[in-house]
Structure formats: structure tokens, C-alpha cells
């Protein structure tokens, strides 16, 4: 890019401004890792808990959820390393990061509040997860993630109003619609260089 003052017209100025804004717009979209990682991890935990509870006499099938503890560290280390390699930080980057960290804190508090009443965990965690998922979709202007957030909220209600046979299946369904489908769409777009 040259630095020519005399030749630049008003239209050219507008073009430079819009081009540069467009180039910095979609930075966060290049991050399907967390969606796919958590989508699969929670899907596996929820299905294992369900099947374990249905087909065995073991009374603490929820113990499988302890897998999410190392999962948090994997996510934090991945995010930290990615942040170190990043050469630009947008305001949306920061908002996106703090939205999910706020969710993490809320989820930890929810575990403490519901300790001993873990059968209600799925309902409340879906309601809570709907918030960062929907908001993230709004921040990065990604409709699939917004729909995913709406699905979380809808499935939270389904979980509340259905019996113990159906309610545990709402979490794996939510993982498909809320994390895995948007995650794979993002991954495809990353590969095609659309983000």
C-alpha cells in the first residue's frame, strides 16, 4: 500500500476504511476447537451417565462428569497458547473470552448449589449454557450458534417438564444442536478460508 495523499479520493478513503474493518471483523470465528471439544466431551459424559444409570446398579453414574475438570484445564491451556500466538485483539475477542469465563464461574457455582441434587444439573446447566452460546453467536454474527443457544433454552424446558427417562437425553441432543453442528460448520468455513 502506497502513501499517496494527492491522488486519494473520498471514495478511495471510504474503501480503505471498510476494507480494513472487514479484515479485522471475523477474528474469533477461527476457533471451532472449544465448540467441538466441549460438544464431544459433554456428549460422551451425558450418554455414559445415562447408560450407566439405566443398565447397571451403580448408584453414582454422575461421577463420569469429573472428566470435565481436566477438560477445563485443556480448554484454558489451549486458549492461553492461542492468545500468545495471536497478533491482533479485537474488542469482540475480549467480550467473547469473558462471556465464556463468566459461564465457567457460573457453572462452578451451580455445581456447588446443586450438590446432592445432581439430577437437576442437566436442566439448569442447559439454561445457563444457552446464554454464552446465544451471545457468542451474536458477537461473531454466526446464526448457527445463535440457534444453538435457543436450542439450549428450549431443551432446558423440555428437560424440566419430562420424566426421568427422557430428561437425561436432552443434554446429548443439546450438544449436537448447540456445539457440534455450529462447531463443524465453523471448521468447514475455516478450511475454506471463509473466516
Amino acid at each position: 500500500m502506497e502513501n499517496n495523499i494527492k491522488k486519494m479520493s473520498g471514495e478511495e478513503s471510504i474503501k480503505i476504511i471498510t476494507d480494513m474493518i472487514e479484515k479485522t471483523r471475523c477474528n474469533i470465528k477461527q476457533g471451532s476447537f472449544h465448540l467441538l471439544f466441549w460438544g464431544w466431551l459433554v456428549l460422551i459424559c451425558s450418554l455414559t451417565e445415562y447408560l450407566w444409570g439405566q443398565f447397571s446398579n451403580y448408584d453414582k453414574p454422575w461421577i463420569v462428569w469429573l472428566l470435565t475438570v481436566p477438560g477445563v484445564f485443556v480448554s484454558l491451556i489451549y486458549g492461553f497458547n492461542k492468545g500468545k500466538r495471536q497478533t491482533v485483539y479485537t474488542y469482540a475477542d475480549r467480550l467473547y473470552m469473558w462471556t465464556w469465563l463468566s459461564f465457567l464461574v457460573s457453572a462452578i457455582i451451580l455445581v456447588v448449589l446443586l450438590w446432592g441434587k445432581m439430577q437437576y444439573m442437566g436442566t439448569y446447566i442447559l439454561m445457563l449454557a444457552g446464554f454464552p452460546t446465544f451471545l457468542s453467536g451474536v458477537i461473531i454474527k454466526f446464526r448457527a450458534l445463535m440457534i444453538g443457544g435457543l436450542c439450549f433454552w428450549a431443551l432446558s424446558l423440555v428437560s424440566h417438564f419430562t420424566g426421568p427417562d427422557i430428561s437425561p437425553l436432552t443434554v446429548p441432543v443439546a450438544m449436537f444442536t448447540g456445539y457440534l453442528i455450529p462447531g463443524y460448520i465453523l471448521k468447514k468455513e475455516e478450511k475454506n478460508g471463509n473466516v
Binding site: 476494507d19 474493518i21 479484515k23 479485522t24 491482533v88 485483539y89 479485537t90 474488542y91
Partner: peptide
């Protein structure tokens, strides 16, 4: 223009 849209670059 880049810096207007970013926190830092």
C-alpha cells in the same frame, strides 16, 4: 482503521 476496530494489533 485497523486500530479503530481492534484493542491492539
Amino acid at each position: 482503521s485497523i486500530l479503530m476496530n481492534t484493542e491492539s494489533a
